[in-house]
Simulated assay, not measured.
Amino acid sequence: MDLISPASGLIIWQLLIFLAVLFILGKFAWKPILNALNERESSIEEALLSAEKAKEEMKQLQASNEQLLAEARKERETMLKEATSAANKIKDTAREEGEKERKRMVEDASLEIESQKKAALADVKQQVAALSVQIAEKILRENLQGETAQKSYIDKLVNDLNEN
């Protein structure tokens, strides 16, 4: 039974050694371990706070991004409307200028036609005058003998002119 029940001296020595180990552990091991645990706990809390702060910032950034996107869409729509309006104005201006150019060309062509018509009439008048001169020349060349021959020849020429 000696093995089962320890002697009182052994218990005292074991108690003294236990207290010494407890004191040494308390002095040198537990304080650094507790300090490390406290530091770890505080760093975890700081990380959680940082994560929460980052989450809030992300929400704000997301809201800001959505607002910027909405503004960009509005600006794009405005720019598209302005571009469409400008394109329509350019088309209208080009159409008006084309119409003015067409009218000017028609007027120029009309003036040219009128000018050519006058030139043609002048040419016709000149040809008529030349023909008249040729007729008169033929009459004078023919040296008509007698008044009756002259009258008959003049009547013949007048009939020819009336037929033409």
Rank of each mutant, 00 (worst) to 15 (best):
1 M>I: 03
5 S>L: 05
10 L>I: 06
13 W>G: 08
13 W>T: 15
15 L>F: 10
16 L>M: 05
20 A>I: 11
20 A>F: 03
21 V>W: 04
22 L>G: 06
24 I>A: 08
25 L>S: 06
26 G>M: 07
26 G>E: 02
31 K>W: 12
31 K>Y: 13
35 N>Q: 06
36 A>C: 00
36 A>L: 03
43 S>E: 12
44 I>K: 08
55 K>Q: 07
56 E>S: 12
57 E>A: 04
60 Q>T: 05
62 Q>D: 05
62 Q>N: 09
63 A>N: 05
63 A>H: 07
69 L>R: 09
70 A>P: 00
77 E>M: 01
79 M>A: 12
85 S>A: 07
88 N>W: 11
89 K>P: 00
90 I>V: 13
90 I>Q: 14
96 E>Q: 14
96 E>M: 10
97 E>I: 04
97 E>G: 03
102 R>M: 00
105 M>W: 00
108 D>L: 11
109 A>F: 01
110 S>C: 10
111 L>C: 05
111 L>F: 07
112 E>L: 15
115 S>Q: 10
119 A>H: 15
120 A>N: 10
124 V>K: 11
126 Q>S: 14
126 Q>Y: 02
130 A>Q: 11
130 A>G: 04
132 S>F: 06
132 S>K: 13
136 A>R: 03
136 A>M: 01
136 A>L: 05
139 I>L: 05
140 L>G: 09
143 N>I: 00
145 Q>Y: 02
149 A>N: 14
152 S>T: 14
152 S>M: 10
153 Y>K: 07
157 L>G: 13
158 V>G: 09
158 V>T: 15
159 N>Q: 15
163 E>Y: 11
164 N>D: 15
